[in-house]
Design a protein around this nucleic acid. Structure first.
Lengths: 212, 212
DNA sequence: ACCGAAGCGGAAGGACATCGTCCACTAGAT
DNA sequence: ATCTAGTGGACGATGTCCTTCCGCTTCGGT
């Protein structure tokens, strides 16, 4: 039995470890999981040495960040499941509010490297499956309520969401291509004028895109 | 007046140049605009030397690819504008079918580097503005037809589309954040069960996401 | 207050990847 | 036939990032 870092570490070391994790999480989100270790260390306010003592290599760090994110998603999802009575509302809320969800999805989708790391980690997979299970529940529930179009699955939503954040990666090129088509289809439906949710903010015009 | 590469080049050189451009385009699309020059050369079936003689450095190549993509988008858009009588149909068709549009948007959004290169190129900007003008026409037209929700602008659509393909980049963090919110909102509307377009293929389930 | 051990930072060495040049050779054009 | 534009790819230069190492600092128990 390996000693648990949560309890074994000296107080300051524990603090540093948390800071590193937090810094890595936000750096990964902004710049992808290949940011120089030194930048992560700097952002965490520690030296590279400290970073390396805590996480022997980049893979370990990526894994730790992913675990942390996934855990939070699961917590979010369960809280939402407990609080909302409508599955559609739950789904909507999860997609809209869960920063953790965005971060996890992003991390997993951004780089091939990260994907491989996470794919082969049984703990991560277990968490992932638990999350998908909850999501599946939301999806089926929302469809039973007649709120969610019946022709989508949890995978659609995961992909749509993931794609929205970054690029697509799927089992086969065929699935990826189909997924892309479906995403576009959904967006188009989202765009077409039918009574829907009001969008926040104001319309973004082409002027807003001007690079300056 | 610099001699035009289209007419001045020897036949084989011309052919090679085209192959390089095509190869670069697809490599950029797959791996981003920072792929090693050698890989591009290999994909084009030429040596690195040839690549470098034709395009003095990476920036020149990126610019050339972007120009080519943008030009095609404009052509696509104008063909569509001429053929479709409904602006909504035109918009829909442009978003769905224009591979060139996807490629351009992607290239411009993928890396900060590419963005800077293109931002400062007057020719690219001019083309971009022409495209946005056509897009604006579609948007306003489709809204007048009552087919497109009135609370979106061409910018929304550009961002939504761009985001769908890769990550977001905007004037300010504020705009970026708002844009992200709005994209999600649109997608949610696209997802909610109201009579919409039928999605192609079959629902993608969480099983389809399994990494193997 | 003291001390041993745990922890820290960041300079430095090393592995690796990509760039872009250069020149001997090939093959269109006239 | 010949001249010259064009070609390929090895190679030295450059830069980036990883990881180790060790002298110094801080914690925490007594």
């Amino acid at each position: 039995m390996t000693a648990d870092p949560e309890t074994t570490l000296r107080a300051d070391a524990r603090r540093n470890r948390d800071q590193i994790l937090a810094a890595a999480k936000s750096m990964f989100a902004v710049s992808g999981p290949e940011v120089p270790m030194e930048e992560i260390a700097r952002a965490a306010g520690v030296g590279v040495g400290t970073l390396y003592r805590r996480f022997p290599d980049r893979d370990a760090l990526v894994r730790a960040v992913a675990m942390d994110n996934f855990e939070r998603v699961l917590i979010d999802a369960r809280v939402i499941a407990a609080e909302e009575t409508s599955s559609w509302r739950a789904l909507e809320r999860l997609l809209r509010q869960s920063v953790a969800l965005q971060l996890s999805v992003q991390l997993a989708m951004v780089s091939h490297r990260a994907l491989v790391i996470l794919k082969n980690d049984p703990e991560v997979r277990r968490l992932r499956d638990e999350i998908l299970e909850v999501l599946d529940g939301f999806v089926h529930g929302a469809q039973a309520e007649g709120k969610l179009r019946p022709d989508v699955g949890a995978g659609d939503i995961a992909i749509l969401f993931a794609t929205l954040l970054r690029q697509m990666r799927a089992k086969s090129p065929d699935v990826a291509e189909m997924a892309a088509r479906r995403c576009v289809g959904i967006m188009i439906d989202g765009l077409s004028a039918r009574p829907g949710t009001e969008l926040p903010g104001r319309p973004i015009t082409s002027r807003d895109l001007d690079p300056d």
